[in-house]
Structure formats: structure tokens, C-alpha cells
Design a protein around this nucleic acid. Structure first.
Lengths: 175, 175
DNA sequence: GCGAACGTTCTAAATATTCTGAACGCACGA
DNA sequence: TCGTGCGTTCAGAATATTTAGAACGTTCGC
């Protein structure tokens, strides 16, 4: 039995699954991850599939993707032939891994194309200005992300600092 | 005639269109936006559709979405009944608007759900710790984004600072 | 070696998203 | 008032993504 109430877990699983699209992972994968996050003990593939009402095949593929991201780990349970899964304890790690992968697949090619474009002759006037500004923005973002990926600890502090600066800090409307 | 070569524009349009999925806008919308970004003068709907090889209907809907985001503006051309479109000059603005919209639609509900979950009794031990850590991460991100949305100028500087910090700054592999 | 338990892979079905193109309404000039 | 040019909307076609479930290979206990 999980340390949290099934109802609570359920709610979290759905919320996380819904947010998955924000960072580009599919609903099943996000839900499997959420379930493991919210569960104290290791879970077997079949139990995951049952609890989430998804097929074993889907669960298997989702777990593989999560392992690829390095956010889920297989553990052995003595005397049990089945594979059990747990989430890695560091939530930040998960976030970084996924971020890194998306950056590599989607962001980097675009940044490169834009750089090439700005470098190439042809763009002039206002257009050139806009393009340069955009390349500049993307480069800054790339820098922050790289920094984040290489030194999560200090970058996290830096971000927390920005987040907490007095100016413009808006309290969340909830509650 | 555009100030840039058609070839150059074309290349940019495709790169931008491909990256669209990263921030969750569809390919057509991103391509229309890119075309306007890369074009000096205002364009009529039909020309946009022709140049991008998409239907007028699609172009119309894409332009509407871009206007909703506030990144594209309609302009009048005296003596011409058609609507012409130009991009807003501030690239950052565009970025913020889209960011804001996605945050509102996808992030905020999830953050709220997780907060509610951590507040609720039920989560204990390691699970509770993980959940708190996650809520903490999301709250930090929310803070940075809010800050960004409210004061682009200073936030941009702060990010540029983080990006440029000597540690771990990796040169782009291109070239 | 045989059969059962288990995980993985793959095909095809289900679903979601995006796009086209026809229908429509509006505004304008004749 | 009619006809033309224009933009928008929407139903359904095209496409992409996600999922189920059957088929298969492996391991282990007997």
C-alpha cells in the first residue's frame, strides 16, 4: 500500500500527465513517472499498467523512455523474477535530462540556422535588426540552459534569486 | 520585393517553423510569423498563403492566432481594400506573449494541483519530500517567468549574466 | 526439456491534430 | 441593387501521434 492515499496519488498522476505536453513528453510517460514519484516502494510493470489503466506494452515503452532520460531506475527484489521500478530521488535531475534532450533535438538546429542566416549577406535594414535581436535572444537562452545543464546547483540558486527579487514578484493567486 | 533574398527567407521560415513545436505553436503559425519577421514591407493574406504554399483559410487562422498573441498587427494600405500584416518590432515582446499564454494555459493549473497535493494530508516520508522538492522547483520557475513577464528588461540582463558566467560556458559547436 | 511467468516489440486501431477548400457574409463600386 | 473581391469559418480529408494487444523470446522452476 502506498504511503499516500490512492486518491491523492491519482490526482497527482493526472495533473502531471496533463502538464507533460508542456515539456513535450507524452501523457502515458508522464503518468508513469508521476505514479513512481508518488509511490514509496518499487512497482512492477504489471502493477503500473493496472493502476494507470494502460496496456503492458505501453507501460513497458514508457518505462524505457523514462530510463533513457535517467529518471527511473530498475531495482531487483530478491525472490521475485519481475522487474521493479523506482524514480530517481533528485527531481531536478529529471528536469535537466529532459530539458537537455529537447534542447538538443529541437532548439540547437534552429539556433544554428538562424546564426547562419544572420551571418549570410542579404538581410538588411529592419529585417536584419529583428533577426539579430532574435539570434541574440536565442543565444542568451542557450547560454542559460547550458549553464543550467552543467551546474544545476548554482544555476538553481541564481534562478531562485531572480525569482525572489522584490520587484514584480507576484504572489500566486491560489488560496 | 523583400529586402532579403527569397532563398534566405525561405530557409529562415523553415527553421522557425520546425522550432515552433518547442514552444507549442503549430508549424503553419510559426511559418507565417517567420515570413513576416523576414519581410520588410506589409504582406496581404493571399501573398502569405502563396509564398508559404498554404491555403487562404489556414493563413487566415494562423494570422488570427498571431494577432491574439499580439505579435502581428494589421495595417491599412490606402487605396487597397485588402488587409496587410506586419510583425511587431520587438522580438522579445513576441516571446513573452507566447510564454505568458502557455504558462496560463498549461503550467498554472498543474502548479496549483501540486500545491494542493503537498498541502493535503496523506503524503509522507520520501514521497512527501519529492513532492515538496518538485513544487519548489516549479515555484521557482514560475517566479522567474513572472519576473520575466513583468520586467523583461532587467530579467533579460539577469539571464544574460547567468548565461555569460565564466563557469561551464560552452562555445557553440557550429562553424 | 517443458511450461509458465514475464518483458519487449511490432502492427494495426484509435485518437488527436492540422490542413484544405468550399460556402458564406460583408463591403464596396458601379 | 447587383456583382466582385476579400476574409473567415467550418466540415471533413489528410496526417501524425498514441495506444492496445497479439506474437515472440527469455528465464526460471520443476
Amino acid at each position: 500500500m502506498p504511503a499516500t492515499t490512492p486518491e491523492t496519488v491519482q490526482r497527482f498522476v493526472e495533473a502531471w500527465g496533463a502538464m507533460g505536453s508542456l515539456w513535450g513528453i507524452n501523457r502515458s510517460v508522464a503518468r508513469v513517472h508521476a505514479l513512481l514519484m508518488a509511490t514509496e516502494e518499487a512497482l512492477a510493470l504489471e502493477e503500473i499498467a493496472e493502476r494507470l489503466q494502460i496496456s503492458k506494452g505501453n507501460a513497458s515503452m514508457s518505462l524505457r523512455e523514462l530510463r533513457t532520460f535517467g529518471v527511473v531506475r530498475q531495482v531487483e527484489v530478491p525472490g521475485d523474477r519481475r522487474d521493479f521500478y523506482v524514480t530517481e530521488p533528485d527531481v531536478w535531475l529529471m528536469f535537466f535530462r529532459i530539458l537537455k534532450e529537447r534542447k538538443r533535438r529541437e532548439f540547437d538546429p534552429a539556433l544554428e540556422a538562424i546564426h547562419a542566416l544572420v551571418d549570410a549577406p542579404g538581410a538588411t535594414g529592419a529585417v536584419r535588426g529583428r533577426l539579430e535581436q532574435m539570434a541574440d535572444l536565442l543565444t542568451t537562452i542557450e547560454g542559460v540552459v547550458n549553464r543550467f545543464l552543467q551546474d544545476p546547483q548554482s544555476s538553481r540558486s541564481a534562478l531562485a534569486f531572480i525569482a525572489g527579487m522584490p520587484f514584480g514578484r507576484k504572489q500566486n493567486g491560489k488560496g
